[in-house]
């Protein structure tokens, strides 16, 4: 177990180092997030729709679109000099490679979210006071959901023609449950609705996380050459 986690950690550190030195993907994702947040603010009739009404949707569209900019990066990096072979030659379990890649992507998306949230609060004039723990739970659960599926799909997408185009086409249908759930939860939490109104969606997110994390880890090996 310690060996397994050690390998996962080594991959995460390696990916983070590479990302830190290049910063291209991260900067693009952050700039993309700022652009989406501001465009969505203006994509409404200000006399009819208050910015508060569209805020939860805007936040989640921003998170997922910005994540999509970065998700392919993890496996494109391995394609560069066929570096993935270097990992596959070692006796490291295949699932550890996937979990490492997925954890790297979680960190990546997590940092993009960390930067987007203050801007969201600023742009949409929302108050998060007292709601942070709940919002954090929603964000964590929905992010795990789409990063798990997204990491697996990107492992395939980078090896097809039109790789950049393929990931959104494959991934977006899978974003419907977690993103709709996250938007519903976010708006209810921001409106300070009772916890009983949140449970159904929380259960949906939890079930999605469990099912798709397990599936993604199990199916990763089938995406490797053999």
């Amino acid at each position: 177990m310690r060996d397994y986690l050690g390998v996962v950690w080594a991959i995460v550190v390696k990916d983070a180092t590479v990302e830190w030195r290049t910063k291209t993907a991260f900067m693009s994702a952050v700039v993309f997030a700022i652009l989406v947040l501001s465009i969505l603010y203006f994509a409404r009739d200000p006399t009819a729709v208050s910015s508060m009404d569209i805020a939860p949707g805007a936040l989640w569209v921003t998170f997922t679109f910005a994540a999509m900019v970065g998700l392919n990066r993890a496996f494109l990096l391995e394609r560069e000099n066929q570096a993935i072979d270097g990992m596959l030659l070692t006796p490291v379990p295949r699932t550890a490679i996937f979990v490492g890649k997925m954890t790297g992507n979680l960190l990546f998306v997590g940092f993009v979210e960390l930067i987007s949230v203050p801007l969201f609060v600023l742009f949409y004039n929302v108050s998060l006071a007292g709601r942070l723990p709940q919002l954090l739970a929603v964000t964590a659960m929905a992010t795990v959901a789409f990063v798990a599926v997204g990491t697996l799909l990107s492992a395939m997408a980078v090896r097809t023609r039109f790789a950049e185009l393929m990931l959104p086409i494959l991934l977006l249908p899978f974003l419907i449950p977690p993103v709709v759930g996250a938007v519903q939860l976010t708006s209810r939490i921001l409106a300070a609705r009772p916890a009983s109104e949140l449970m159904g969606w929380f259960k949906l997110l939890a079930a999605f996380d469990i099912v798709f994390c397990v599936l993604a880890i199990l199916l990763y090996e089938a995406t490797l050459d053999e």
Binding site: L152, A222, T223
Partner: peptide, 11 residues
């Protein structure tokens, strides 16, 4: 790849 996507779709 199609099988992986098919299984994910089923889920």
């Amino acid at each position: 790849f199609s099988a992986v996507l098919g299984i994910l779709g089923l889920a």
